[in-house]
Simulated assay, not measured.
Amino acid sequence: MDYAEFQQLLAADEPPDLPPALRALWQQGRGDWHGAHATVQEAGGADAARVHAHLHRVEGDAGNAAYWYRRAGRTPEKGSLEAEWEALARELLERDFRAEGEST
Rank of each mutant, 00 (worst) to 15 (best):
T75F: 06
E42F: 00
R23A: 03
P16N: 04
A83Q: 12
L88H: 02
L88W: 02
A83N: 04
Q7A: 10
W85T: 11
A4T: 12
T104A: 06
D13P: 10
L55A: 09
A43F: 02
R30Q: 08
G101W: 12
D13T: 12
A24N: 01
E42M: 06
D2M: 14
Q7P: 01
Y3Q: 11
L9W: 12
D2G: 15
W33F: 13
E100A: 10
A62N: 05
P19F: 03
G79M: 11
A53C: 10
R23L: 09
G35V: 06
Q8E: 14
L55I: 10
G63N: 11
Y69A: 08
W85F: 14
R90A: 12
T104H: 09
A4E: 13
E94V: 00
G60N: 06
A65R: 01
L92I: 08
P16H: 08
Q7L: 14
A43C: 02
S80R: 03
A99N: 01
A53I: 09
L93T: 07
A89C: 15
R30H: 02
Q7G: 00
R50K: 12
N64Q: 11
F97C: 10
F97D: 10
A53R: 04
E102M: 06
H54I: 11
D17N: 11
G101P: 07
P76E: 08
D32I: 13
R57D: 05
H54R: 13
W85Q: 15
G63H: 15
R70L: 12
G35Q: 06
P16D: 00
A24V: 04
P15E: 12
A11S: 14
R71P: 01
R70M: 09
T39I: 00
R70F: 01
D61V: 07
A65W: 00
L93Q: 06
E5I: 10
R74L: 13
D32K: 07
A36L: 09
R90E: 13
G60M: 07
D61T: 01
L10A: 09
R50M: 15
P20L: 07
G79A: 14
W26M: 01
W33E: 06
R90T: 06
P16T: 01
A83W: 02
L9H: 07
R57C: 04
G73T: 13
D47G: 14
P16G: 10
A83L: 14
A43M: 00
A4I: 15
L81M: 02
V51M: 03
H34K: 09
Y69D: 15
D61I: 06
A46T: 10
G35K: 09
L88A: 11
N64M: 04
R50Y: 00
E100S: 08
E5H: 13
L93M: 13
Q27P: 12
